[in-house]
């Protein structure tokens, strides 16, 4: 069986799944809208945790949070289920497809065979939609891919039961009830307020202060860790920032797109100006990536080169601090 489902590519998987499921249910909500209302933008350094043997920073909210907040703020309800046994997980998925209900799934990336090898890491917070089943093959709409694809039962089970951090445990989710009209205005304001609060939080690992902390660490890496490790660490920061799904510039461009759309919905001209400013901050992040890549491309670790990119991060932290204070006043 195949459910009538429109696949629309998005930058980020979670926004994309939400936006595509909403469209399926008759509500046109753009990816940036989902991201902004769900307070997706963030900067956070996660101490004590290593992924691929390097420190972890994130440019967005924890997996699942964006949809939860979005749902609460616009007034829809979502059902989420996790499973211990793959059999029950499969049965419940098939049941939903029988009922013509496309569902969102959380999966691990490592065994997603349609991804290029180079992208297959043990990352368990990827999202996609299953919209049907044909001859034991599941029909897959993966929002980061241009086209729809398929997975066999076995392949899908493997990615649904990937292990490690954020293990999906067969996690499925879908919206269950909708209001007559979506409460966009108040939702946007709530979303923006939370992002402003988080980005200016008085916590050393979150928001602009988190960026400052990373900048301090970067200055120390070449001496403390040696050229090779320092380059590996720096490379991981750039990868997290520019990985598929960020839309470029560590989600800053998606957020700028959100502010532009929000300025129309709210009739607030200031947000349009701030959108331009956010674009500029995104450009600064891109410049940082270019300069960082020069360091690890040459495989050198001159202290002054590290200090230079750390200075760039400090400047970005200052602009973001100023930006979110202004944004808070603008709404």
């Amino acid at each position: 069986m195949q459910i009538e489902f429109t696949h629309k590519q998005s930058a980020h998987c979670e926004n994309g799944v939400v936006s595509n499921l909403m469209r399926h249910n008759g509500f046109e909500v753009s990816e940036p809208m989902v991201f902004g209302i769900g307070s997706g933008l963030l900067f956070c350094y996660i101490p004590f945790l290593k992924v691929n043997h390097a420190p972890v920073v994130t440019y967005r909210a924890m997996p699942g949070l964006i949809f939860n907040r979005f749902a609460k703020r616009v007034g829809i309800k979502i059902k989420r289920e996790k499973f211990n046994s793959p059999e029950t997980a499969k049965a419940r998925l098939d049941e939903n497809l029988q009922k013509n209900n496309p569902v969102g799934l959380q999966v691990g990336v490592y065994n997603l065979l349609y991804f290029p090898d180079e992208y297959r890491f043990h990352f368990n917070a990827h999202n996609l939609v299953v919209y049907g089943k044909e001859n034991e093959n599941y029909l897959i709409s993966d929002p980061v891919m241009e086209q729809v694809t398929t997975l066999t039962e076995k392949q899908l089970e493997k990615v649904r039961f990937a292990k490690g951090a954020f293990a999906p445990k067969g996690h499925i989710y879908y919206p269950t009830s909708f209001p007559k009209t979506l409460e966009l205005k108040s939702a946007i304001i709530k979303g923006i307020k939370q992002t402003c609060r988080e980005m200016t939080a008085p916590v050393p690992i979150v928001g602009y202060k988190g960026i400052k902390t990373i900048s301090k660490l970067i200055r120390k890496w070449p001496k403390k860790k040696g050229a090779k490790t320092a380059n590996h660490y720096l490379g991981q920061i750039v990868r997290m920032q520019e990985e598929i799904g960020t839309g470029g510039g560590g989600f800053r461009y998606i957020y700028a797109a959100f502010l532009q759309e929000a300025s129309q919905v709210l009739g607030n001209e200031k947000l349009k100006e701030l959108s331009k400013e956010m674009t500029k901050i995104g450009d600064d992040w891109r410049d940082f990536a270019v300069n960082a890549s020069r360091i690890y491309k040459n495989r050198s670790a001159q202290n002054d080169a590290y200090n230079k990119v750390a200075d760039e991060l400090d400047a970005i932290a200052d602009s973001e601090a100023a930006f979110f204070k202004k944004l808070k006043k603008a709404i």
Binding site: A11, Q147, A257
Partner: peptide, 15 residues
């Protein structure tokens, strides 16, 4: 990039 082998491109936001 490395996405060629998967015959896809990635979506970015721009002005």
């Amino acid at each position: 990039g490395l996405l060629d082998s998967a015959h896809t491109k990635e979506l970015t936001y721009a002005v």
